[in-house]
């Protein structure tokens, strides 16, 4: 019948109709979820992911509007297009969730993560660590005669690269905040 020539899987529900909804290719998406800052809201979001078997690659949360009782959760998740759509729909039906934005498809966005790297060593290795830190524009936020703590802000891949270089130079401990992200422009 298909007289209207409706594409299989196209729907007004979907924000982007052109992707193949049945694709089995896993995609990485960064979601910004604005939530009512009330007890248990983070547990609801995390419980949704564990209960329905979705992935969380990283998650950050903090209050962003004190008077409006609003917190922002930035999460990086991965899944097939159908799973990503389902994640967004499921997040949207949590009562204290106000808005769900898929930064990966809603235009250009900026992603940043902060990492603290404890690098221990002496002699050449210590000098080399300091030199590489300068190249990466990392700050030294703590120093002893045997160690540095570097602070580095950047994309997750920049932090990955820095960690890879620091590992042979005595990287002992690493703390990462997870991704915070925001859309470019107004």
């Amino acid at each position: 019948m298909n007289a209207l020539n409706i594409q299989q899987g196209a729907s007004s529900h979907s924000a982007y109709d052109l992707r193949d909804p049945n694709s089995q290719v896993e995609e990485r998406h960064t979601l910004a979820v604005l939530v009512e800052n009330e007890p248990g809201v983070l547990a609801r979001v995390i419980g949704l992911f564990s209960g329905r078997g979705y992935n969380i690659d990283s998650l950050t949360v903090a209050e962003v509007d004190h008077t409006g009782h609003q917190s922002r959760i930035t999460m990086v998740t991965s899944g097939t297009p159908a799973v990503i759509e389902q994640i967004k729909a499921q997040l949207g039906r949590i009562v204290p969730v106000h808005e769900v934005h898929d930064l990966t498809v809603e235009g250009a966005s900026v992603e940043r993560e902060l990492g603290l790297f404890k690098v221990c060593g002496q002699g050449d290795k210590r000098v080399e660590a300091l030199r590489i830190a300068e190249i990466f524009r990392a700050n030294v936020v703590d120093s002893t005669l045997e160690s540095f703590v570097f602070e580095l802000v950047g994309t997750p891949s920049k932090l990955d690269a820095f960690a890879d270089l620091m590992r042979p130079l005595g990287l002992k401990e690493l703390a990462r905040t997870g991704v915070a992200a925001i859309a470019r422009g107004v």
Binding site: I6, S11, H13, P21, E85, Q86, A89, G92
Partner: peptide, 24 residues
């Protein structure tokens, strides 16, 4: 078949079966 789905819950749509017309 062409499938249309009327549902008040957006998460019900395209959860199991991909539909051609979704009406939330």
């Amino acid at each position: 078949s062409i499938k249309a789905h009327i549902d008040i819950d957006p998460s019900s749509i395209n959860k199991v079966i991909h539909v051609d017309i979704a009406i939330t």
